[in-house]
Design a protein around this nucleic acid. Structure first.
Length: 337
DNA sequence: CCTCCACCGGAACGTGAGGAGT
DNA sequence: ACTCCTCACGTTCCGGTGGAGG
């Protein structure tokens, strides 16, 4: 089965809920059934997904050291030995396939053909609606027998969810209707993500509590939204590796010196200068270009491909976070200060 | 209309850390 | 002791490209 839907539309929650009921029912009627839930993005690689699968059939696998094919064999052995049915949920499978292809999925679908005892049921969850394009037709035919699409929540639905939670979590009249509506609207504008909506309400509640407010008002919701964004960025910035930070500073300085010419070429020059001053070996332009793309993906920087005709084509890069945030990060930098 | 710039981005490959199996 | 894994992070190489200016 395939489950599609944007983040925060309930895919994972619903799947877990159903799984829980299934395993409760199976122990009630005494049927051999085990379930495993794996988040492929968190797992990171084909190897680690496999090793987690193996663990779910009680086969311990070292976290590194043996060949992927070997882990796969052990998993098959374990499944066979265990018998029954393994329901395996692969959350964010699209990440797995993008990183390491659909080989693993293909192999997994083939298990049922060869293994008489011990069958596997695959449930793939994906954020990417075009995920199917990445798959080989053979994999597709055996996988997508059933599809469910989770649509983004509308503002009204989000409002209901929030209201429900607010009743449990907050004192009576702890939140104004307007604040709830705003909260739902903000989250709905951002792809109808329920998790975001709940986060927003929670943070707003914390803010209100700290300031001794009597109820969560629209004002607190707005503040909370700002805070969430700010915290997210600070956290990301703080954990950036050295050269990634250097590239970020280069963008910052280039943009300050010459706001119009923030092309990769100029940024790279600045970067080289910084490296030389700090007595470090600069990375190649290719690598820096990759780092810039990563910063872009994290939403720290915004880059756009531009064509300067005779002057070639390049990328125009802009910071998409406030300058002050980079400044304060720079202040913590003892080596570069 | 054609050229050619200045970079983009894919692919293959290298290295060193962390570790398993025999 | 030796071979063989994964994986993150880089490098080298190279074909690709949209449009200003000849």
């Amino acid at each position: 089965m395939f489950i599609y839907g944007k983040p925060g539309t309930g895919k994972t929650a619903v799947t877990r809920f159903v799984l829980q009921h299934l395993s409760a029912k199976s122990s009630e009627i005494d049927t051999p059934l085990s379930v495993s839930y794996i988040n492929c993005r968190l797992a990171g690689s084909e190897y680690r997904v496999l090793s987690m699968l193996s663990q779910s059939v009680k086969v311990p696998v070292p976290f590194t050291g043996i060949a992927t094919a070997e882990v796969f064999d052990r998993f098959k052995q374990g499944l066979k030995a265990m018998g029954g049915i393994l329901i395996s949920v692969l959350d964010e499978v699209d990440m797995l396939v993008k990183a390491s292809g659909d080989k693993l999925l293909y192999e997994l679908t083939r298990i049922n053909e060869t293994s008489p005892t011990g069958k596997i049921v695959l449930i793939g969850i994906s954020n990417d609606l075009n995920f199917k394009d990445l798959l080989d037709p053979r994999v597709l035919s055996s996988l997508s027998e059933e599809e469910i699409v989770f649509h983004p929540y509308t503002a009204d639905e989000l409002y209901d969810i929030l209201l429900d939670r607010a009743k449990i979590a907050l004192v009576q009249d702890g939140v104004t209707e307007g604040a709830l509506r705003l909260c739902a609207a903000l989250a709905a504008a951002e792809h109808g993500d329920a998790r975001r909506a709940l986060d927003l309400l929670r943070v707003a509640g914390e803010l209100a509590e700290r300031e001794g407010g009597r109820a969560i008002t629209e004002d607190y919701i707005r503040k909370a939204q700002w805070k969430i964004e700010h915290d997210r960025v600070t956290e990301v910035l703080r954990t950036l590796p050295l050269h990634q930070r250097l590239v970020l500073y280069s963008v910052y300085f280039t943009q300050q010196e010459n706001p119009k010419e923030t092309l990769t070429g100029n940024i790279y020059e600045t970067y080289e200068r910084i490296c030389r001053k700090a007595g470090m070996e600069p990375l190649t332009q290719r690598r820096v270009s990759g780092l810039l793309n990563e910063l872009d993906a994290m939403g720290i920087v915004n880059s756009k491909l531009v064509n300067l005709g005779r002057h070639g084509r390049s990328k125009r890069v802009r910071l998409s976070i406030p300058m002050e945030q980079v400044q304060s990060l720079l202040k913590e930098e003892t080596r570069l200060s």
